[in-house]
């Protein structure tokens, strides 16, 4: 299965890549804003995306909406510092499948990956 990582921070993208311990989940690309993410979804057809919310160019919410228009079956895990309930509800309402807050532990991230990939 294919994973796309979207975050404006290079160190967070690399941390997610290093933290991934799900055996058959391969990182196929990374994007530093929502706009780049939409393009990479078309090219790489990921099964799962980690999506930051606060990013330049195009934020995570708009990017989720556009990605799900292009590839509706994509599982999107929001990984964001925005820790309020309203933001989590908004992201889940528009189609994200999971939400974890930064800072996250490796276990939290992998548990979320496994949950989202359970029914594929």
């Amino acid at each position: 299965m294919k994973l796309l990582i979207v975050d404006d921070s290079n160190i967070i993208r690399r941390k997610i890549r290093r933290s991934n311990k799900v055996g058959d989940l391969e990182v196929v690309g990374s994007a530093c804003n929502g706009l780049e993410a939409v393009e990479l979804v078309k090219q790489t057809q990921p099964d799962l995306i980690t999506m930051d919310l606060t990013m330049p160019e195009m934020d995570g919410i708009e990017s989720i909406e556009k990605i799900l228009e292009v590839k509706p079956d994509t599982r999107i895990l929001v990984v964001s510092a925005l820790a309020d309930k309203a933001t989590a509800i908004r992201a889940l309402t528009i189609g994200a499948r999971g939400f974890i807050c930064k800072p996250f532990t490796e276990d939290e991230l992998n548990d979320a990956f496994e949950q989202l990939l359970e029914d594929i």
């Binding site: 606060t54 330049p56 510092a81």
Partner: peptide
Amino acid sequence: EVANTVSGNARRDLGPEFVISV
């Protein structure tokens, strides 16, 4: 990332009207 995460986490208590920039 430290500034972003600490500010974003503050919304848990200060609410979504605490709007943060990149």
